[in-house]
Write a protein that binds this DNA or RNA. Structure first.
Length: 337
DNA sequence: AATAGCCCCAACCGCGCTTCT
DNA sequence: GAGAAGCGCGGTTGGGGCTAT
């Protein structure tokens, strides 16, 4: 499909987010929860704190603002950009600061298992985003691994890789003509392959696969993991683990193996996994105080801009939402999801 | 102090998949 | 069933900060 249709429209801002845009988006998500990103740009500005105050006075028919100031434009961003900004920066459960040694080890271990499936790796690291982990991997961890003599793509010792390449070269010199004829190129697959026995029984499948998963990935010698003769796609195997819900895709497999992973990564981390998937207005409301404090501190740390720790909109929300949906739709020329 | 080069990371882009009409 | 719309993911880019010269 390519580019989002909303991105083709005019007046779409790009680049860094301003404090005002952040506030609009943040207020909107806190109030309405996550969902229907395409409508967020329109609604976000409309439900910002300042406008809610205006609506309040409007409802009371004591408008201290004239009709021109009543109208406030929404975010001039595409929904996709809003989603990204929320996930990578504004989300209240985000952890800031350097990666701990434990996190670093977890990333390396998971990368060995999953390859570049950053979102899945991120789901095992509380408060970290896929983007953050991806950046950290590319900027730091790759180097660290190379310094330790480990190839970051295969997680094998560099000496072994070099030996393999030497062997490949020798082999290629013999079979190069055949490769050339078939237009084939030896490609290194960054996603490791494992052997997982398939069971017919659906319940046993989980148990069996978990067992093999552990057997294969328990921290034994690195070289022992990838030396099986009959191989299947590891991604498919992980998808199978989540077979209880046939609609589930590969990005959700961690939900079903959560209990198993707990034993590997610890309770605390895995609890977050289930919690972090739930983002409703109610949940957001519960975290509201903490969130504002968190953001405020962060913005102070960054020496950027102050956001009121408790904005006026919080006290007016009920009043504001007593305004009829139709009235708001026609007033602001928007459609609610 | 000026500047060139490097590095990090926020944000964008394009694609695949799912859901909706 | 087909096409459109929307979402999520991984790869890539470019701007800003830091460091070396």
């Amino acid at each position: 499909m390519g580019r989002h249709s909303c991105c083709l429209k005019q007046k779409i801002r790009k680049g860094l987010w301003s404090p005002e845009e952040d506030e609009k988006l943040y207020d909107h998500i806190i109030r309405c929860g996550v969902g229907c990103w395409s409508s967020v740009p329109k609604l976000a500005g409309i439900f910002s704190s300042s406008l809610l105050l205006k609506i309040f006075f409007h409802v009371l028919q004591t408008p201290p603002y004239n009709s021109d100031t009543f109208l406030l434009s929404g975010l001039e961003r595409c929904g996709k950009s809003c989603r990204l900004r929320w996930i990578n920066y504004l989300r209240p459960d985000l952890k800031r600061g350097n990666f701990s040694q434990q996190e670093e080890d977890t990333i390396i271990r998971l990368h060995e298992i999953m390859g570049n499936r950053w979102s899945q790796i991120a789901s095992q690291l509380p408060g970290r985003t896929d983007n953050e982990i991806k950046n950290y991997w590319n900027s730091c961890l790759k180097k660290k691994l190379r310094q330790r003599g480990i190839d970051p793509s295969s997680h094998k010792p560099l000496s072994e890789i070099a030996a393999q390449e030497e062997g490949t070269r020798t082999h290629c010199s013999n079979t190069g003509a055949a490769f050339e004829q078939l237009q084939l190129h030896p490609v290194f697959d960054t996603f490791p392959l494992i052997e997982i026995q398939t069971c017919l029984d659906s319940v046993e499948t989980n148990v069996s696969i978990y067992g093999q998963f552990h057997q294969t990935f328990e921290p034994v010698g690195q070289d022992e993991c990838l030396v099986n003769s009959e191989l299947c796609d590891h991604g498919s195997a992980l998808d199978n683990i989540g077979h209880e819900d046939s609609s589930i895709n590969s990005s959700n497999w961690n939900c079903n193996i959560g209990s198993e992973m707990k034993s590997v990564f610890g309770d605390e981390d895995l609890n977050w996994v289930s919690q972090s998937k739930v983002e409703t207005p109610a949940h957001m409301q519960m975290n509201e105080e903490k969130t504002h404090e968190h953001k405020f501190n962060h913005w102070q740390e960054k020496n950027t801009y102050p956001i009121p720790v408790r904005s006026l909109s919080h006290d007016l929300s009920e009043t504001c939402f007593s305004v009829s949906r139709d009235a708001l739709e026609s007033e602001f020329n928007v459609d609610f999801c």
